[in-house]
């Protein structure tokens, strides 16, 4: 047993005891995967909405620092490693180069170049490839013509893209999870209509000095040219949808993707991670996640911005793999 498994063993024992205790009442909720994903997803969307009403600045500050790297690892795991795309070496290298370039400062048009090898290298009908090429060309045209605006729109929309990708690509595993996209859409509309503002005023949540950031800074970053009230609401919607995005990658897709339908102990989860990535890369990921969390303790704002610099690539990765799967009509 590895050191990590030894650490996780007591947590697993506690979890098993809790399951046994709750089994008479909550057993049916956990036993069936589709039902479990449906209620877990709905609960997480509701919690994300309530947190957006109560502490949006904390969500924006802590979310990326604590959940950012794990969700990037999940991105890579469920989009690349588990479907085996890394074994299609030429495709992986050609897609990987522009993705890496975006992390090094390249603009969105370069990031979108990752879609080209995915589209042309996909095994599927040329009619679908032609359609996807047209989509790529439109996006590239927008990226070249409206670079900064495109990046902002993409930052907002990529949260939704993850929900759509999960809903479509793993659809056979969560037939009853309609509540998740519906609640996410309803929550976004409610925030854009101003539902949160009286609550934030009542709770005194317009400032959170310990986060090192204010609504002013977030509005300047996320909606710089929008009218003030709309800018504020876009920031709130971003906080909410970012949280939903993390839930999808860290909870719902892992639940849906694993072969075994029953909940998996944490030790088994760790073993599966080691099997998927290998020990050395996984150690680097864990070190990176802890590094950013510790950085957050020292300087929360810089840690958040540091993570965001790191994460630029993953929206384009989601688009590229989504395009590949849409053409191939399958996930792997």
């Amino acid at each position: 047993m590895s050191a990590v498994e030894a650490i996780l063993a007591p947590a697993d024992a506690l979890r098993a005891r809790l399951y046994r205790l709750l089994a008479p009442w909550a057993g049916p909720l956990f036993a069936d995967r589709a039902r479990r994903v449906a209620w877990l997803g709905a609960t997480q969307v509701v919690i994300a909405f309530l947190l957006t009403l109560a502490a949006p600045l904390w969500m924006l500050a802590l979310g990326p620092v604590l959940l950012g790297v794990p969700h990037l690892v999940s991105d890579a795991r469920y989009l690349v490693v588990r479907p085996g795309l890394h074994r299609r070496t030429v495709l992986a290298l050609l897609c990987g180069a522009p993705l890496l370039a975006t992390c090094l400062g390249a603009g969105p048009a370069i990031g979108l170049l990752a879609l080209l090898p995915a589209i042309l290298g996909a095994q599927g009908p040329w009619s679908r490839k032609g359609l996807m090429l047209t989509v790529w060309a439109c996006l590239s045209g927008l990226a070249l013509g409206f670079g900064a605006t495109f990046q902002l729109a993409f930052a907002h929309l990529h949260n939704v893209i993850a929900v759509a990708l999960w809903w479509w690509a793993w659809r056979e595993r969560h037939a009853r999870a309609w509540a998740v996209p519906l609640l996410a859409a309803a929550g976004t509309v409610a925030l854009l209509l101003g539902t949160a503002e009286p609550v934030l005023t009542a709770l005194g949540a317009w400032t959170a000095p310990w986060t090192g950031a204010s609504f002013t800074q977030h509005a300047e970053a996320l909606a710089p040219r929008a009218p003030p009230v709309l800018a504020l609401r876009l920031v709130l919607a971003f906080a909410f949808l970012q949280s939903v995005h993390y839930s999808v990658w860290l909870r719902l897709i892992p639940e849906d993707d694993r072969p075994r339908a029953a909940p998996r102990p944490w030790r088994a989860t760790w073993r599966a991670l080691v099997e998927d990535f290998g020990g050395v890369p996984l150690t680097l990921f864990v070190a990176l996640a802890f590094g950013i969390a510790v950085w957050g303790v020292v300087d929360l704002t810089q840690a958040r911005l540091g993570y965001l610099r790191l994460a630029v690539f993953h929206g384009y990765l989601e688009l590229a793999v989504g395009a590949l799967w849409l053409i191939e009509g399958r996930r792997s």
Binding site: V69, P224, L288
Partner: peptide, 21 residues
């Protein structure tokens, strides 16, 4: 080697998300 590509891509990343001035 392939398994090192992903962490390399993550660790070598270093750029552009700036607040708009």
């Amino acid at each position: 080697m392939k398994r090192l590509l992903l962490p390399a891509a993550l660790l070598l990343s270093s750029a552009a998300w700036a607040d708009l001035p």
